[in-house]
Design a protein around this nucleic acid. Structure first.
Length: 423
RNA sequence: GGAGAGUUGGCAGAGUGGUCGAAUGCGGUGGUCUUGAAAACCAUUGACCCUUCACGGGGUCCAGGGGUUCGAAUCCCUUACUCUCCGCCA
């Protein structure tokens, strides 16, 4: 969430920035500032009362010790009166605070100044493009047909056992999955990331910390009996490692990587855009997460971007990088670059990575702070990026590399797959 | 799943109803001493909120939430977590 201080100091600026996200914040901001005012006044009033009550309480103890029983009894009844008043006030205070927090959480992160205005993915800005477009014959097969042809992914079996969007990978297909995971992890470790294996279920506090809760619970699978959510991305457990943590400035940069299954309900998605591997309820992803000093977070975002670009180069996939427009930017992000690979048979770009800087938005929710050189507390910045999400990478690899002999495996992967051709 | 014991400041560990935000030790920071370092000695040592230009003042926090009481780290209820024993189990 945004810091209250920012809203107090620069309400107009916040409103203007949020309009880039097509978010009309005027009313919400007014409510927040009003609640903030009430809260502070109530706090002062309550503190004063409590101060009186504390003094009284102390004197009662002393009066008893001194044997002045009558005086003590008199003080007791005064104290009881005070208590009634503090009860009323503290109820008012906690109501106000609760409402204030509720409203505060409804405000999305403000976009970085470089974010273009826009309403949908059509308004995203292509900032970079690289790689040779595949030249495929007219009868080239989409990946879901290749999957069947080579018996490497079974969607029907997944439907039988679980439901749509939960495929089985089989034989060389399963091996390819494992190869990609290991390749991505090894690359990350070489680049200085620390590998984690996170839990796949998270509690409510964690969901709140990274911004999935309270609004997006419909996107996550929920284990009702135990009040736990299946993670939609490793970002959630890995970033929440730092919930309620105070770092030292020398702890930066923090670079973590994790492979995990990801679970997404994808409520409301259907149609041909979601065929095959294009959109799944369960998929595999390697995610990089960095915690940074605010001064360095944008330089770090660039580094992460370059890191992801390099993975795609090694996989010999044509890709482009988009700067998301305000309308397509997630609730919590300040700046996001999407990576898309070109899938030759579907003849479309597929999103395979999303690299974001959340600035202090998640950190503020999580109370992730550090002590700066002057000993002052500051919120850290959090960043993350897919490096990479498997299904669409697999889709592009299968489609682009199909030949009459079989599907060619890029060189960098061969030592992981142990074969150079799917046949 | 059953039975029991715990959860105190960065860590260890006192504290069982009243000047306790909390002894003590370790660690951290600053200083004295030293050519330098170590040791020793001295001082200092949390987070959050309100208020103040500032100095300062006030409030909250002893796992989370609720309760008893004039007063709770201390008593009661509840949730989470940790540990021990039994059961089950990859």
């Amino acid at each position: 969430m945004l810091s209250l201080q920012l809203i107090r100091d620069k309400k107009e600026f916040v409103a203007e920035r949020l309009s880039i996200k097509n978010f009309d914040a005027a009313n919400l901001l007014n409510e927040i500032t009003a609640l903030d005012k009430t809260r502070r006044a109530t706090q002062s009033e309550l503190d004063e009362l409590l101060s009186k009550a504390n003094q009284l309480t102390k004197s009662i103890g002393q009066l008893y010790k001194a044997g002045a029983r009558d005086k003590a009894e008199a003080a007791k009844s005064r104290s009881a009166e005070l208590k009634e008043q503090t009860k009323v006030l503290s109820a008012k205070l906690s109501e106000t605070v609760e409402l204030l927090n509720k409203k505060l959480v409804e405000l999305p992160n403000i976009p970085h100044e470089s974010v273009p205005a826009g309403h949908s993915d059509a308004d995203n800005e292509t900032v970079y493009e690289e790689g040779e477009m595949p030249t495929l014959p007219e009868d080239a097969l989409p990946h879901w047909e290749l999957a069947t042809k080579y018996q490497i992914i079974d969607f029907d079996l997944g439907s039988k056992v679980t439901g749509a969007g939960f495929p089985f990978y089989r034989g060389q297909g399963a091996r390819l999955q494992r190869a990609l995971i290991n390749f991505f992890l090894d690359e990350a470790i070489d680049a200085g990331y620390l590998e984690y294996q996170p839990p796949l279920l998270i509690n409510e506090d964690s969901g709140f910390g990274t911004g999935q809760l309270p609004d997006k619970e419909g996107q996550m699978y929920f284990a009702n009996e135990d009040n736990l959510y299946l993670i939609p991305t490793a970002e959630v457990p890995i970033t929440n490692i730092y919930r309620n943590v105070i770092l030292k400035e020398t702890d930066f940069p923090i670079k973590n990587v994790a492979y995990s299954n990801c679970f997404r309900r994808e409520a409301g998605s259907y149609g041909k855009d979601v065929r095959g591997l294009n959109r799944l309820h369960q998929f595999d992803k390697v995610e990089i997460v960095q915690i940074e000093h605010p001064d360095n977070s944008y330089a770090t975002l660039e580094t992460m971007k370059e890191y992801v670009a390099n993975l795609l180069r090694k996989l010999e996939l044509p890709f482009r990088i988009l700067r998301l427009c305000g309308g397509d930017l997630s609730f919590t992000s300040a700046l996001t670059f999407d990576f898309e690979t070109y899938s030759g048979a579907q003849k479309r770009w597929l999103e395979v990575s999303s690299v974001s800087n959340f600035e202090s938005y998640q950190a503020n929710r999580m109370k992730l702070r550090f002590k700066d050189k002057n000993g002052k507390m500051q919120l850290a910045h959090t960043l993350n990026g897919s490096a990479l999400a498997l299904p669409r990478i697999v889709a592009s690899l299968l489609e682009n590399n199909q030949t009459p002999e079989g599907i060619k495996i890029p060189k960098a992967l061969q030592r992981y797959t142990g074969f150079d051709l799917i046949k």
